[in-house]
């Protein structure tokens, strides 16, 4: 799809040229036809028509003899393409765990066709995954999932169940164990944590319906100290986030 200017659409290849010019100016202060041709892997002669077109569109300043400069509008378009590239590459690599080289290639392809709205949502998605405590857990889960890494155990069913459970709980408005204050009691409703943590909690007898009491917290507020079934254990808040409880009235 590409961008539109008053004089019609900028093609994919024009966008690539803009990107190259921008990067050349950024890294070497000047952009010469020679360098552009080299980077894009074409002959110098084939660069000229594109330069003329870009000039006509008001994106660059160009006359045969001199270095090429970006107009403010040109710079804006170039920046945008580069930003899209970055975002896409990060998504492909960090979230989908696509191989480095393929991520780079695909980002190059997609960057020209993606809408502003999708990019905007991708950025919000990154933010969400970074700030929401469950985000990192889900990322980790996906990475450790058999679909990505065939040597690991299956995980899809677990995710589906987890999802259903989460929705149910949100409606009921219960607390996370990490939100209880020292002295408060709660009844475990659900263990949201997955994998090793989940197994460990269950092995230690933290099952649904079990009563827990927050006895105290460490000097810095984390980890917390619990009384469960007559014994004491300590958990980091991060781990206590994985347990949903129903707060009990304190006597």
């Amino acid at each position: 799809m590409g961008h539109h200017t008053n004089d019609g659409p900028i093609t994919e290849s024009l966008e690539d040229y803009l990107e190259t010019i921008y990067e050349l100016i950024r890294d070497k202060q000047v952009a010469r036809v020679k360098d552009i041709a080299k980077i894009r892997g074409v002959r110098m002669a084939s660069v000229s028509p594109a330069m003329h077109r870009l000039r006509d569109l008001g994106l660059i300043v160009y006359n045969q003899r001199e270095y090429i400069q970006l107009t403010p509008k040109g710079e804006q378009v170039a920046r945008k393409v580069i930003a899209h590239h970055e975002i896409l590459r990060r998504f492909l690599r960090d979230f989908l765990h696509v191989d480095k080289k393929i991520a780079e290639q695909d980002a190059c392809q997609i960057e020209h066709h993606i809408s502003d709205q999708t990019i905007d949502r991708l950025v919000r998605f990154f933010e969400f995954m970074d700030t929401c405590p469950l985000g990192s857990q889900v990322q980790e889960m996906f990475k450790n999932c058999s679909e990505v890494n065939p040597e690991l155990p299956a995980c899809m069913e677990e995710c589906a169940r987890y999802d259903a459970q989460m929705r149910l709980e949100h409606e009921q408005g219960n607390s996370l164990l990490s939100e209880l204050e020292p002295g408060e009691k709660g009844k475990i409703l659900h263990i949201k944590a997955l994998g090793a943590l989940r197994q460990r909690l269950i092995d230690m007898g933290l099952l649904p319906q079990t009563m827990v009491e927050v006895e105290r917290v460490a000097p810095s507020g984390d980890p917390i100290w619990l009384k469960v079934r007559g014994f004491n254990i300590s958990l980091r808040k991060q781990e206590a986030n994985g347990i949903l409880v129903e707060r009990q009235a304190t006597a």
Partner: peptide, 12 residues
């Protein structure tokens, strides 16, 4: 790798 769960027992 993910932190190993910090679920530590505090024996009497």
């Amino acid at each position: 790798g993910e932190d190993a769960p910090f679920v530590m027992e505090l024996p009497p």
